[in-house]
């Protein structure tokens, strides 16, 4: 199942204003893996995610999705394979109703109408929001918005699910519901987050990023509990560890 691989080969990215966001980043993600990307603000996480579905193209190096390199020509194919859930669901839910928003991707893929309806219902059911189909996005709670944004991506049946800060702005219960929801997905997942507890629950593997470079890449349980590494990456230990640390 080689088409489920995302591979970064010595990828660098420099913004037009000269900011070097990523420097020689290399890693690969295989089928069915759930990988977290952690790092402080400005580490280059969002840039990394944008490179994955060709919203920006690398300054040097190569990004491969399956066997296909991300280039201008392959964009439609890449975007069908890589589903990106953005940090702020308000930016992603731009259509006037939930149903129309979820249908946006499938319609653009050129699917026939019956199939679009089927995909929309299926995706909304999966995230438990079928009853919200006719609601306008501004009448949803934060958690519902997030779930619907995910449905909008699921409806395109991507091979890989890429998420930027999935738990940002959610209250504890909505966050817990989201984690449980994500646990039910058997997609390959790449999650960029500050929420290290969420990472521990969802991702066996973790890539630590700092100043545009890969600092470490390995088992999340090992890396995120490594105090020295965490400190060097400008992060804090997961809360679950901090608490247990004071108790023992």
């Amino acid at each position: 199942m080689s088409h489920h691989i995302i591979e970064f080969k010595d990828v660098s990215f420099v913004y037009p204003d000269g900011t070097e966001a990523l420097k020689d980043v290399s890693f690969r993600v295989v089928h069915g893996e759930a990988v977290a990307i952690v790092g402080p603000n400005g580490a280059g996480k969002t840039t990394l995610l944008m490179l994955m579905n060709g919203l920006i193209l690398p300054t040097s190096g190569e990004v491969l999705v399956g066997e296909v390199p991300v280039t201008k020509k392959t964009l439609p194919e890449i975007r069908r394979k890589v589903g990106v859930v953005m940090q702020n669901p308000d930016d992603q839910l731009f259509m006037p109703t939930v149903g129309e928003d979820v249908a946006f991707g499938p319609i653009n893929m050129g699917l026939p109408e019956e199939m679009v309806i089927e995909r929309v219902d299926e995706a909304l059911k999966k995230v438990g929001c079928l009853h919200l189909k006719d609601r306008p996005p501004h009448r949803l709670s934060g958690g519902q918005k997030k779930a619907v944004a995910i449905a909008g991506v699921l409806a395109m049946k991507p091979d890989i699910l890429v998420m930027d800060e999935p738990s940002a702005g959610l209250d504890p219960r909505a966050r817990k519901a989201l984690i449980n929801l994500l646990k039910t997905f058997h997609h390959s997942k790449i999650i960029a987050s500050h929420d290290l507890d969420l990472v521990l629950e969802l991702c066996p593997r973790c890539i630590v990023l700092n100043s545009g470079q890969v600092l470490a890449d390995g088992k999340a349980r090992d890396l995120l509990l490594d105090e020295k590494l965490i400190d060097r990456a400008g992060l804090e230990l997961p809360l679950c560890v901090q608490n247990s640390g004071t108790q023992t």
């Binding site: 944008m50 579905n53 919203l55 439609p76 975007r79 069908r80 589903g83 990106v84 953005m86 702020n88 930016d91 992603q92 731009f94 259509m95 109703t97 129309e100 249908a103 946006f104 991707g105 319609i107 653009n108 893929m109 909008g152 991506v153 395109m156």
Partner: peptide, 22 residues
């Protein structure tokens, strides 16, 4: 900036200049 992000979100879901009307 938000407009840029919305545009990115649209592109990510296959936008190519037209938006389907219900």
């Amino acid at each position: 900036h938000r407009a840029d992000r919305i545009y990115s979100a649209m592109l990510s879901r296959g936008y190519s200049g037209t938006i389907p009307q219900k």
